[in-house]
């Protein structure tokens, strides 16, 4: 297989990773390398291992075999407390089901991430909401927000600690077209400012925004191609 490309601009290098759940091979010998500032889309049918791969990249799960290097640091043999620390310091997570804390306002949900990371800073959290166009929704509870607004709160929360890597698992899966466009706009401006983004999607038009598309099938990499530059 491929040798891991160990180079300073590689933020993520995955080599020969497999994940086995009993009889199910969720991932088989997956290798992948992502450059700093790159925008990667991961596609594939349901059950092809996309979420499993995201969990491993996001330090929420460990591979059965293979190596993962995140910003030059090998993830194998790290304790769960150490993986937690890496999640806290280096990774921003966005989920399909939003997952906001139901009893906290939009602003407080962003501050939760600050609280577990280091120190709460209400002003900075409010700015983050402003950046996703939600300054006037700061005091609303999640149930008072639309799906698109909730997802934007999640993005503000994912970005608040300046992660090296932004991971989004079907971020627009539960959104209508308008909100999808809004989320994609935010990702574009992040990309422009140099963020590294990995987005799982099964919508071609979402994948088309990225610079590169990786397709998984039955836990294997089926293709890994560079996209046409995105045009509206």
């Amino acid at each position: 297989m491929l040798n891991p490309e160990i180079s300073p601009d590689r933020i993520l290098v995955i080599s020969d990773v497999s994940k086995i759940y009993g009889p199910i091979k969720a991932l088989q010998n997956v290798s992948l390398s992502v450059g700093s500032g790159e925008w990667l889309a991961i596609m594939g049918p349901s059950g092809s291992g996309k979420t499993t791969l995201m969990n491993i990249i996001g330090c929420l799960d460990s591979p059965t075999s293979g190596r993962v290097l995140l910003d030059g640091l090998g993830l194998d043999s790290l304790s769960s407390a150490e993986l937690t620390a890496i999640r806290r310091e280096s990774i921003g997570l966005i989920f399909q089901q939003f997952h906001l804390v139901s009893y906290l306002t939009a602003l407080e949900n962003v501050m939760v991430a600050q609280y577990y990371h280091s120190l709460v800073d209400e002003k900075e959290a409010l700015e983050a909401l402003e950046n996703v166009g939600l300054a006037d929704r700061a005091k609303h509870l999640p149930r008072q927000l639309s799906g698109g607004e909730q997802q934007r709160v999640c993005i503000a929360r994912a970005l608040i600690n300046h992660p090296k890597l932004l991971l989004a698992d079907e971020p627009t899966g539960n959104l209508d077209e308008t909100n999808e466009a809004m989320v994609m706009d935010i990702l574009h401006s992040l990309h422009k400012r140099g963020s590294t983004i990995i987005v799982v999607t099964h919508a071609l038009e979402v994948a088309a925004h990225a610079e590169r598309t990786l397709v998984l099938e039955h836990g294997r990499v089926a293709s890994d191609v560079r996209n046409q530059p995105y045009q509206k």
Binding site: T84, A85, R88, L93
Partner: peptide
Amino acid sequence: RKEIGLKKALGAENKK
């Protein structure tokens, strides 16, 4: 459970 999982995913230490 979801909320606890979320907080841990955000990097919350167990003791917190």
